[in-house]
């Protein structure tokens, strides 16, 4: 009996060690590029571009030179503004289309509601890399080339399907008796929706807002296709294309720009990730 116990506890210790090793490796793999961005962004060029130096140490004092170039020598603030503007407009369009559609699929569309919902969701699988060529013709016809409104027009094509699906799931989780009770008391459905359903759906609407914003901030293909002047770029194309002049890469500023724009977005995104996952896996998990 003591022998069995010992082997069990030693097995537990081995399991624990394996667990910590796995966690350490995955954390390193995932987070290392960001650590390296952070170090690069504040290192002097003479320190950075010296193969003899240990790249993880500041052999010379840190510098804000790269950040100054980023904020003063490039339209970085403008790109942030553009990204925010496009994101906001996309959020508005997405909410206007996806919230009512989600409600309609969850409550009003009876037999065909779920099928239509799945069909809408599947359009999320049609990638920008398949649509950018025909859409470039559409954008050209509308004279929206090199214009942020081209992105505002096109980004809802991937936010609406996904957010409609999320909202449908969200409305389904609210008991229908709530509105029916209000309607028995003489409310119209729209009034019930406004006064009863929407107030308790704030969490769902907030989730959809975050995702529409995050997805439009991450987008690269359409922005690259439709926008070429520096002043109209978003961060996702501005940082990796404008800080390279000929063969010269401004690595310090590049990493600074990537870090400054990626980390806040990542924080916001990861706070809502569980709902995102729940939306994607609805159906496979029951």
């Amino acid at each position: 009996m003591p022998v069995a116990l010992r082997s069990r506890s030693s097995r537990k210790i081995i399991g624990r060690i394996a667990l910590y090793l796995a966690v350490a490796w995955f954390t390193f793999y995932a987070a290392f590029p960001f650590v390296w961005m952070l170090i690069t962004a504040f290192k002097r060029n003479s320190d950075l571009y010296n193969v003899k130096n240990n790249p993880f140490l500041f052999n010379q004092p840190p510098t804000l030179e790269h950040m100054r170039l980023l904020f003063e020598g490039t339209p970085f603030l403008r790109w942030l503004w553009n990204t925010g503007f496009v994101g906001l407009m996309v959020v508005i369009i997405t909410l206007v289309a996806a919230v009512p559609a989600g409600y309609s699929l969850a409550r009003l569309a009876r037999a065909w509601g779920r099928r239509l919902g799945i069909a809408i969701f599947l359009t999320y699988l049609v990638p920008p890399t398949l649509l950018f060529i025909p859409l470039s013709r559409v954008v050209a016809e509308l004279r929206l080339q090199d214009n942020l409104w081209a992105l505002v027009l096109v980004y809802p094509t991937f936010t609406i399907p996904f957010c409609t699906w999320l909202m449908m799931g969200f409305f389904k989780s609210i008991p229908g008796e709530l509105e029916e009770a209000a309607m028995v008391d003489g409310c119209t459905r729209l009034a019930a929706l406004r006064h009863i359903v929407l107030p308790i759906s704030v969490a769902g609407i907030l989730t959809v807002t975050i995702f529409a914003f995050a997805l439009s901030m991450q987008e690269f293909t359409y922005a690259l296709t439709f926008i070429s002047p520096s002043s109209q770029k978003t961060v996702s194309i501005g940082v990796p294309t404008d800080l390279i002049r000929g063969d010269v890469f401004y690595w310090g500023s590049l990493m600074g720009g990537a870090l400054v724009s990626a980390v806040p977005a990542a924080i916001l995104y990861s706070l809502f990730l569980d709902r995102f996952i729940a939306g994607l896996t609805a159906g496979a998990l029951k």
Binding site: F26, T27, A30, A31, P33, F34, A214, M217, Q218, E219, F220, V235, S236, I237, V239, P240, G257, A258, S261, A262, V263, A265, A266, I267, Y269, S270, L273
Partner: peptide, 11 residues
């Protein structure tokens, strides 16, 4: 661990 997924691909 979630950082890579949430970061824009180009950055």
């Amino acid at each position: 661990i979630l950082l890579p997924w949430a970061t824009p691909v180009s950055l």
